[in-house]
Amino acid sequence: MIRIISLASFTAVFLLVVPARADELNIYFKTTPNIERLRPYADPATMSLLVTDANGRPLTDGSVTIRLNAPRSGGFFSTDFPWVEGTRLQEMQLDLRRGRANWKYLFPIRGQYRLAVNVSTADGRKESKQFTFNVRENEKKWGTLAAFSTGLFFLGFIAGRVFTSAPKGIVIIVFALLAASGTRADNNSSENDAGAALEVGPARVGQPTLVHWRFKNHIDPAPSRVLLSLAIVHLEKAKTVFEVERIPVPGEFAMNFQFTDGAEYRLVAIGEEAGSTPIRSEKIISASALEPPTKAMIPAFAYFIGLIALGLIAGRWSKRRDTVKREE
């Protein structure tokens, strides 16, 4: 008992005496809506980072470098975007405003994402942290898969009953020849408006693309701070996949961003400088698609054919049982 008390006293004194490190930085991350409610290609999530000093006060001056990596492949089934699995989705640097950095992002696939955050302060302090979080698949998709699986099973079931006693018939097999489609090539392109330039590298699913925005005065010796709003919209799905609103940038902004679907996207950038009218740049790009790898297809098709085979066996068993009962 005495030993326990003395140990507790020592621990209490240690906690009181050892001061918090002056250069310690705390990094907090949250999403809106909560991570549990995030679903792939549903609605964009607002990602928020908060950096505080050892006393819990938001950092007044500093920047964060963000690297977002997609979930690695590993399960039996592939996701619907196999080329995205395990790749870099986003890499950018944002200035902190009252210790915060916010952006919107639309998660493309289910699984565990990794967000690496590196904080740098004006006085040279650095801190890094990695956050991992899981985005669950949309329940509607599981429901659709269950219905489709049931349909395949019953298709096999009916065939199993028919084949067990039906007379021989003629089976016509239609062979479908598959033709490979070419992927669309997209070249480097840039959109120059009166006072700003928005440049996007060749966009291809599975690898990040450089998105670069430049304000008209950025080559001046002392570039002024500009507030940038940048949005990337998936045109087919009519969903915003990325957005930052009025973030302070030093005349230009660059990030690596992966366009996760082979589709068309609209990029809209608005630069605001004190004392002048906002300058809007808009650009539509087409991300090149890649055909899914064969190894990603095999599990799904093996599962579907396996279900039909199970249905065949069940149908045969059902038919034979009925026949035996009838004969009895």
Binding site: Y41, F77, S78, T79, D80, F81, P82, W83, R110, E137, N138, K140, K141, W142, T144, L145, F148, V205, D261, G262, A289, L290, E291, P292, P293, A296, M297, P299, A300, Y303
Partner: peptide
């Protein structure tokens, strides 16, 4: 349909 099934890969 491919995307709706969750396990069928697409581009």
């Amino acid at each position: 349909v491919r995307h709706a099934l969750a396990v069928v890969p697409c581009h």
